[in-house]
Structures are given as C-alpha cells and as structure tokens.
Computed example of a mutant assay.
Amino acid sequence: MTETIERPLTHAQEARRQRVIDAAIELALEGGYEAVQMRDVATRADVAMGTVYRYFTSKDHLLAATLVFWVEQLQDHLRQQPALGETPAARVLEVLDRALRAMNRQPTLVAAVFLSLSSPDPEAVRCQMKIAELMDAIVFEAIGTPAPIDTPVRSRMIGHIWYSSLVGWVNGWSSVDHVHNELRIAAELLLPNGLEMETH
C-alpha cells in the first residue's frame, strides 16, 4: 500500500484555498447550505473548478473546512483576549458564550456548516475530528491552571454538550438562551469549586 505524503501548500496555493473558503462562507451567508454549489464557489473565488476540487473533495468537505477555519480564528482571538472569569466554570462559559454570540449573528452560515458535520465524506470527517480537537483545546485553555487531573475528559464532555445543544438550535427546536443554560449547567457540574487539582 502506497502512503500519501501531504506537502505543505505554497503561499500562492494557500491564498487560492483561502479564497475558496471565503467564497463558500459568502454563499452560505447569502443562502445557506443549498446556495453553496461548487461551480458558484469557483466563480465567486475566481478560480477554476479543478482548483476547488484540488483542495476540497466535496461540498461537505469545503463547508466543514470553513468551520475549521472559523474555530481556528476563535482560538486565536481567545488567546489574544482570554476569558477573565474567577473560576474554571466561569471562564469556560465566557468562552463558549463568545462563540455562541458570534454564531447567532450568522445563523444561515452556522446551519450550512452543521449540515456538513454529518457527512460521511472521509475528508469532511477529518475536519470534524479537527474541530473536536480545537474545541477541546479551547475549553482546556479556558479552564487554566491549576486544572482538574482529568481535564481532557471534562473538556471533551463539555464539547459534546456544546455540540448537541447547538444542533438543537440549528434545527429550530431550541433557543440561544437554552444553549447558554445547557452550557452553564454543564460547566458548573463538570467544573465545580473544590475539584481535586494538580498543576500541569
């Protein structure tokens, strides 16, 4: 079996790939999931169709990649302006509330990318795994130090609750306030005061 070696993109290739992501974001903001058609993405990004498919195997891969990009931006922003709560639970809730407010400003985009997260496309699945990894890191960093001994497990559980709550909001049977309350309860239960701590 031949192993595929992924080479880093050149600056020009990275710029073209980013134009494709930006075009997908614009189309999703305008019309949601159905508005993101690969031919329209190519036209909006001013690249050939072959260029779009060079970087993204499918529409779902592209939309999942836009969420990776968004979460990476969120992580960078949070590192520049970290949460200031006095307890781990307060900091985690502040971080997730910031993300929730940003999502609430662009619901059609959020709905589009969340549809892609159920795709079986292998490349979309890789993006799903990357998003989970990034969210774990965001929650872990918000918890801070000293941290609970089992912080990775607690971070992952909060991430699961975050995702499932957002699915309800995206599908219209839950509200932003409900998502906030679910996250508050999860943070308080999983990160109560008096946890056994150790410095990492």
Rank of each mutant, 00 (worst) to 15 (best):
Q75W: 07
S164G: 00
E34F: 03
M129W: 14
M38P: 01
V176S: 05
A48C: 02
A112H: 06
N193I: 05
Y55S: 01
R17G: 02
L78P: 06
P152W: 12
D60E: 15
L78V: 08
D177M: 06
A187G: 10
E182Q: 13
H178N: 05
T87S: 13
T151M: 14
T43L: 11
R156M: 13
V68W: 02
W169G: 01
G168P: 07
F56C: 02
V153N: 13
M49Y: 10
L109E: 05
D22W: 00
W173C: 02
H160T: 15
L63G: 04
G172C: 10
A83H: 11
A124E: 09
R17C: 04
D76L: 14
A102L: 13
N181W: 15
A42P: 06
V110P: 01
A28C: 12
R126Y: 02
P146F: 11
I25N: 01
A28H: 09
D150C: 07
R39E: 14
Q128D: 05
A99L: 11
F56H: 01
L190P: 08
T51D: 03
D121A: 06
G31H: 08
T108E: 15
T4H: 12
A83M: 07
M135G: 01
T57M: 06
D97H: 11
M38T: 05
Q80T: 12
V92G: 02
L96A: 02
T199H: 15
L109A: 07
A142K: 06
V95I: 06
A112N: 04
F69W: 14
G159M: 11
S116P: 01
A124V: 02
E72C: 01
L63E: 04
V36M: 08
A45C: 10
D177G: 00
M49L: 14
L63P: 04
H11L: 13
A42F: 07
I138E: 04
V52W: 03
H178L: 02
S155W: 11
H61V: 00
R126A: 09
D97L: 09
R126N: 03
R98Q: 11
S58K: 04
L166R: 03
V95C: 07
M135P: 04
V47A: 09
W162A: 01
R17T: 04
T10H: 11
A48T: 10
Y53L: 05
R184N: 09
A89V: 07
D22G: 00
W70N: 03
L189P: 00
Y55K: 05
F140H: 14
L29Y: 07
L166D: 02
H11T: 13
E196G: 00
A137G: 10
E26R: 11
I21H: 03
L84C: 05
V41I: 10
P148S: 06
A24W: 08
L67Q: 04
A45D: 04
A45R: 01
S58P: 03
I138Q: 05
T151Q: 13
E182A: 08
T87P: 02
K130W: 04
